[in-house]
């Protein structure tokens, strides 16, 4: 533990005089007249697709059809049908074949299209990343304006892991040409339940 004490000692000796935290008055923050429309625009700008639905039935049927077609799909949303717990615990080598995963997001952020997904919703931390395609379900009432508001609504300390996801995995590391599907999901689709 020698280094710890040494580091903290030098830091304490060298840190400047106390500076207070800023007063952060949220009155100056951007506002949108239609949060849902803004969320959709922001999502499309980051390469996600958005579909607004009035009835969860739409999604249930899509899931059912895909399961019947024998495709490797995992559902983690209780309201959509059965959840195959065993499947979520498969080893990475097997999940590497996973075509699609359905996960519920708890908060959507209108300014940047980010959807908050806590560990409890994804069942296995790997799922939203390793699946070829990611489907997120978001309730319209859970769309907030900015990240500031999002962090007021979520408590990051309660989840072992949580992630804001905005669109599909992407990279522009080759000549700044944008390519989707770098390492994570190739596509992200967000269903907004009205």
């Amino acid at each position: 533990m020698l280094s710890k004490e040494k580091i903290l000692q030098v830091v304490a000796a060298n840190q400047p005089e106390f500076v207070p935290l800023p007063e952060m008055n949220h009155g100056c923050l951007i506002e949108y007249s239609d949060l849902c429309a803004q969320f959709k625009t922001a999502s499309e700008n980051v390469g996600a697709t958005v579909q607004r639905i009035n009835d969860i039935q739409v999604l249930k049927e899509e899931l059912k059809k895909e399961a019947e077609a024998g495709r490797f799909i995992i559902n983690t949303i209780a309201g959509l049908g059965t959840i195959n717990k065993q499947a979520t615990l498969l080893p990475a080598a097997r999940l590497n074949q996973l075509e699609k995963v359905y996960i519920k997001g708890t908060i959507g952020v209108a300014e940047n299209a980010a959807v908050w997904v806590p560990e409890s919703n994804m069942l296995n931390r790997l799922l939203p990343f390793i699946a070829e395609h990611l489907v997120l379900l978001l309730e319209k009432k859970n769309i907030v304006t900015t990240l500031h508001e999002a962090y007021q609504r979520i408590d990051i300390s309660t989840a072992g892991f949580g992630v804001f996801i905005a669109g599909p995995s992407k990279t522009a590391d080759i000549e700044q040409s944008l390519v989707t599907g770098a390492h994570g999901a190739r596509s992200t689709k967000v269903y907004i339940l009205e």
């Binding site: 072992g160 992630v163 905005a166």
Partner: peptide, 17 residues
């Protein structure tokens, strides 16, 4: 950094998996 409103993934690690 890139003009994106946020990176695709902002992962919050709180406890070991």
């Amino acid at each position: 950094a890139t003009g994106q409103p946020i990176t695709t993934y902002s992962s919050h690690f709180q406890q070991p998996g």
